[in-house]
């Protein structure tokens, strides 16, 4: 199976909101679409899923046109949405029916997912003191629990392609871990997942390949490890009990960020770091941390998007 997005262009009036987006997923896993707010991520996703008509380009699934009414696609939208006044079971069964899942199978899957996502008590509320159980409506749930129900809706048809738009936003750490585990399980099952997120640490945890878009344009694309390698180990983190300001100046290094006793530095080559290390050791100041590493995705993102904005 493969997903190919070829030269996707989407305009609103004269404004181009997605400009020549292309990427390919030829093996199961998570593909990241990154960008600032308003960069065009959601428009790209809506265009890929066929919700929005686009000016030019092709979206192919296994070489054929991707038609969500024929291909089993799960979608978790950026802004959460459930019918506030309807019961959870009714709407989950409805969503399952729209995806062609039989009622019996849907009920079975709802039960399994409810257990996994720890929302059984809301979908199957227990009877209290002989009184009939009060069925929960979506509006009676917290935002996090509503998000779980929506993830259930996205997964209920056991989709081949899963699109998760900001899946972890607004979740507490415990529930975020729950979601992460489910995403990992889906990847292990061989699912194709497109994920957009502002949480770069999460993306680094899951994604091999990514595209960063800004104002509709692709500013960086490729395999995350290769991108990082291409930057080299130029980020230096130093923590010393004492003042090393002068030593940094002598080594001619750029301070990216400074917190009490800790410096984030940018080096041009690994040798520059060695020079600084030797100087610190000569001072006999207690050295707590000295780490030369590749840039994080967060740093790459800020650099790329920041550069475009500066231009």
């Amino acid at each position: 199976m493969s997903l190919e997005v070829k030269n996707l262009v989407k305009k609103y009036g004269d404004k181009t909101v997605v400009n020549d987006l292309s990427f390919t997923m030829d093996k199961p896993g998570v593909y990241a679409l990154l960008g600032t707010n308003g960069a065009g991520k959601t428009t790209s996703i809506r265009s890929i899923l066929g919700m929005l008509a686009f000016e030019s380009g092709e979206i192919l699934w296994n070489g054929g046109k991707l038609d969500t009414s024929k291909i089993n696609v799960g979608y978790l939208a950026e802004e959460r949405g459930l019918y506030p006044k309807y019961t959870l079971m009714d709407q989950l069964l409805y969503f399952a029916k729209l995806k062609g899942v039989s009622k019996e199978e849907a009920k079975k899957r709802i039960k399994d997912w409810a257990e996994k996502l720890q929302v059984t008590e809301y979908i199957y509320p227990p009877a209290v003191k002989g009184k009939k159980a009060k069925v929960k409506k979506a509006e009676e749930l917290s935002k996090g629990n509503q998000q779980k129900i929506q993830l259930m809706a996205a997964l209920i048809s056991d989709p081949e392609l899963l699109v998760l738009d900001e899946p972890l936003s607004g979740l507490d750490p415990v529930n975020a871990d729950l979601f992460k585990n489910i995403i990992k399980e889906e990847v292990a099952k061989g699912k194709y997942i497109i994920m957009s997120s502002h949480q770069m640490a999460t993306i680094e945890e899951f994604c091999e390949d990514l595209t960063i878009i800004d104002k509709g344009n692709v500013v960086l694309q490729g395999n995350l490890n290769e991108i990082k390698k291409s930057y080299g180990r130029v980020n230096l983190c130093v923590k010393v009990e004492g003042d090393i300001e002068n030593l940094i100046k002598e080594a001619d290094l750029t301070v990216v960020n400074k917190t009490p006793n800790e410096y984030q530095l940018k080096v041009n080559k690994e040798e520059d770091a060695k020079v600084l290390l030797e100087k610190i050791l000569q001072t006999n100041l207690p050295l707590i941390k000295f780490e030369l590493r590749e840039p994080t995705l967060h740093e790459i993102f800020v650099e790329k998007v920041g550069n475009v904005h500066e231009e």
């Binding site: 809506r46 899923l49 919700m51 969500t68 009414s69 696609v73 799960g74 979608y75 939208a77 802004e79 959460r80 949405g81 459930l82 019918y83 506030p84 709407q91 969503f95 729209l98 995806k99 929506q150 809706a153 996205a154």
Partner: peptide, 13 residues
Amino acid sequence: SSRVMEYILTSIK
């Protein structure tokens, strides 16, 4: 307003 529309549109036209 409840954004259910987006989910539904992945299944039907």
